[in-house]
Design a protein around this nucleic acid. Structure first.
Lengths: 261, 261
DNA sequence: AGATATTTGTTCGTATGTATT
DNA sequence: TAATACATACGAACAAATATC
């Protein structure tokens, strides 16, 4: 009988505390909570006392498991050696989106699902950008448009242009002063890019009317943004999204109808 | 097979066999590979032989580590008891949201940022739910409202009611046929719940007019949903979000002005 | 440069709790 | 209720990494 003085009952709370959740999970949450409350920033050292098995009244293995969980979540990293220990780390937006992509891999949202969100968010994004763009940002956006201004001469070029078009929207998202909004928009773009269904559509030639109106939208959008007219920008983007959705849905049924072509 | 030729530390041989990768990682990959190749679907039972330490030639603890890893990744869950064991699961939405919370921990979005998204998405969510709710879902939503129908008599109760109010929106999100939309809405709610700023606001008493209009909105919303009137639901939710945002922003400046109270 | 000390990481065997039959 | 099968937790010993002297 390894007589642990108090064993694994943390604060003493004996009264019928039903312990459904696993211990490492609880410990991890506890540590995370402390980090949040104390306001530790990426790069900061997590005090050894917070993660010491003795202080926590748990075994090394359990503690390690908790830390591993936090590490997997990208919240901390640990370094070996003297002066080493546990440090707060920051998750990059790209990594987070990658993990989310994996999440939706098993039950991928439909094109309609994705566009329901894009129709709601991208106009908001556009409106928020009106009169806010720096000269540098504006230049990058205009350069982005130029990439697909020319008539495509090959299927590869066509595909590259379609991707560049998505990148235009990604640029917009990155410019957003509302980082949360920018993140979600980028996530939606990533979903679109990854969908094999969409890839197939992008590989087919785009009809002239879609290309034309597409570029038309972007130019009008930039003009509205430069003029600081948020409402016009919102309206333009909403129309653009509606058109794009209609186009994608039509192509999707076409592609489904003739999978051989 | 049963006992590995050499313990877990070979007397020497550092040069030839470089074992960079850790054993649990390798085992985990091995098991995942098998699951993918065999085409096991979520809910399927993972054959005990695949995860038995003896068959794998490893110790119980090491095997557990491997399983833990797969559990972190959301690929499996394990149930106790006879007939229990390891089962294939799909990544839980909760874990994914946890991940995102960590992303924004270091640069938390403002209340205005969050509500910019909520104002755009929650009305969409509501509209999509019109006439789609099952009797069971409707019952749960109504039960959720009842939790904060009564006048709160203490600060704790008040706080609990505020959280329950958020849970109502979480229920809505979970009902959504557009899982992507539901996911993002849940994520926004999680951000709100985590914000220390918001926690402080929630702890303060809610003025009667806010509570009243709050419940009013929910009841009207449910009525519109039951009637299958998507446009009315959208409008109601939009108003609700605008009101809630205004309220939160006002309380935020108040809380900032008198941090002592 | 090299030995040492410090800290994290890995793996084992064993004990204990818990849910199902 | 008892038995059983399984997950969970613990502690010890070993290994690797790294800063300091």
């Amino acid at each position: 009988m390894t007589d642990r003085p108090e064993g694994h009952s943390i604060g003493g709370t004996p009264p019928a505390t039903i312990r459904r959740r696993k211990r490492p999970d609880m410990i991890a949450d506890q540590i995370r909570e402390r980090i949040v409350i104390e306001g530790l920033k990426p790069g900061d050292r997590v005090p050894a006392a917070w993660v010491s098995p003795e202080k926590l009244g748990i075994s090394r293995g359990t503690c390690r498991e908790a830390l591993k969980l936090l590490e997997f979540q990208g919240l901390i990293t640990s370094k070996t050696g003297p002066g080493g220990g546990v440090f707060v780390s920051s998750v990059s937006e790209r990594d987070a989106i990658h993990l989310l992509d994996n999440l939706f891999l098993s039950r991928p949202p439909s094109i309609a699902d994705i566009y329901a969100l894009r129709k709601a968010l991208e106009p908001e994004l556009a409106a928020g950008l009106a009169g806010q763009l720096s000269a540098d940002e504006m230049a990058r956006l205009q350069a982005s448009i130029r990439l697909y201004e020319a008539e495509p001469t090959s299927a590869e070029e066509e595909y590259a242009q379609r991707i560049a078009e998505l990148d235009f929207h990604a640029e917009l998202a990155n410019c957003s002063r509302n980082k949360l909004l920018g993140f979600v928009c980028n996530f939606l773009l990533s979903l679109l890019k990854d969908k094999t269904e969409c890839r197939a559509i992008y590989l087919e030639p785009t009809p002239w009317w879609m290309r034309d109106t597409g570029i038309n939208y972007q130019v009008r959008l930039l003009r509205a943004l430069m003029a600081g007219d948020g409402e016009r920008a919102r309206k333009i983007m909403h129309e653009h999204m509606s058109e794009a959705e209609k186009f994608m849905l039509e192509r999707a049924v076409l592609a489904a109808a003739k999978p051989k072509a």
